[in-house]
């Protein structure tokens, strides 16, 4: 347990938090690229998935893309970016990689959510004379909401994990505390960095679960 005590000492030492290599700066980088990537991924994936789900086409692609995403090693993609001119583009290679790995779970879950809406409810809404737009906004979207949020959560978790691996390819983010600790054989620093990353991932997951519960359109009924 000695290492964990030392890791705690590392975390409570003010000097480790300040400066360009400090934990605050790394945390800022991590949150900044992650938030940016999550917004971009949602803008790319959600309209496409919701539209495909609404018209009921492109199912095989939307469902299988998330399994393809799992097969591609994040580290390899980031390493390939780093040997192209992209390496001089600041946060851009990280953001591209994050978006690449966040889009599949968003796309799959939103599409499946739209398709798993009770067909009887859709038929009833059509029978009541709802237009396609009304059907989408008042029936399909509220009923698909739980799975869309599940997709958002897995995308967020995936993004934070990918942003950590960016450090292995020499980019910024909290993972740098871990890789720099490895480089100088400083195990307490490695563990402290890992604790920060894990805490961030679990915190984001927890916040999203809370947001999900708070805004669920079906909350009153259940």
């Amino acid at each position: 347990m000695g290492v964990f005590t030392q890791a705690w000492t590392w975390l409570t030492t003010g000097a480790n938090w300040s400066g360009d290599d400090g934990a605050w700066h790394r945390l800022g980088e991590h949150v900044y690229v992650s938030a940016l990537a999550l917004v971009v991924s949602c803008l790319v994936a959600l309209p496409l998935a919701l539209w495909l789900g609404h018209i009921g086409k492109g199912g095989a692609l939307a469902v299988n893309i998330s399994n393809v995403g799992r097969a591609i090693p994040v580290f390899a993609v980031l390493a390939l970016f780093m040997v192209t001119p992209l390496r001089n583009a600041g946060y851009l290679p990280t953001v591209i990689a994050l978006v690449l790995f966040a889009v599949p779970p968003l796309l799959t879950n939103a599409y499946v959510g739209m398709r798993e809406v009770d067909r009887a409810a859709v038929e009833a809404a059509r029978g009541m004379g709802m237009s396609g737009r009304q059907l989408f906004l008042r029936v399909e979207l509220p009923l698909a909401y739980p799975l869309i949020m599940t997709g958002l959560r897995s995308a967020a978790v995936q993004i934070i994990a990918t942003a950590t691996i960016a450090a292995m390819a020499g980019l910024g983010g909290l993972g740098r505390i871990v890789t720099e600790g490895f480089a100088v054989y400083n195990t307490p620093q490695v563990v402290a960095g890992a604790m920060l990353v894990a805490a961030l991932a679990l915190l984001v997951e927890g916040v999203l679960v809370a947001v999900d519960r708070l805004f669920s359109p079906l909350r009153k009924r259940s």
Binding site: F4, A161, T164, I165, G193, A194, M195, V197
Partner: peptide
Amino acid sequence: TVLYTVPSLAMFALLLP
């Protein structure tokens, strides 16, 4: 599910000691 949330780099680093 909580285990899956922990990023891989952090998981390997936490197992190091």
